[in-house]
């Protein structure tokens, strides 16, 4: 089996990719991609650390199932917001959506 550190580094790399996407991209759908990648990185960490713990625990997998379900709801609401923003503004470039600016 692998040492725990490799899984940790993979999760860290995925998190970095997600952070890069959140900073660099202007398309709202790509921002949603980045958020999904970050959630996946977090879930890998949960499962790996639960698998390598001293006492046998299953809480990592249970919590991950809840996290995946909540990520699905987040994607549904986010995509509905994107569709509505496109219908109102004909654009989903997040730098162009200025209607809520004070």
């Amino acid at each position: 089996m692998e040492p725990l550190f490799n899984y940790f580094i993979l999760s860290l790399a995925l998190l970095s990719v997600g952070i890069y996407g959140l900073i660099a991209k202007r398309n709202a759908i790509r921002l949603l991609f980045a958020v999904e990648i970050i959630i996946n990185a977090a879930i890998i960490n949960f499962v790996a650390f639960a698998r390598y713990s001293e006492t046998p625990i299953v809480t990592g997998q249970t919590f991950s199932i809840f996290a995946i379900a909540l990520a699905a709801t987040e994607a549904a609401v986010g995509l509905a917001i994107i569709v509505q923003a496109f219908r109102l503004n004909k654009d989903i470039d997040v730098l162009e959506l200025k209607k809520l600016r004070g």
Partner: peptide, 8 residues
């Protein structure tokens, strides 16, 4: 973290 090698 490096010392954790074997899974449960």
């Amino acid at each position: 973290l490096l010392s954790i090698v074997t899974p449960n």
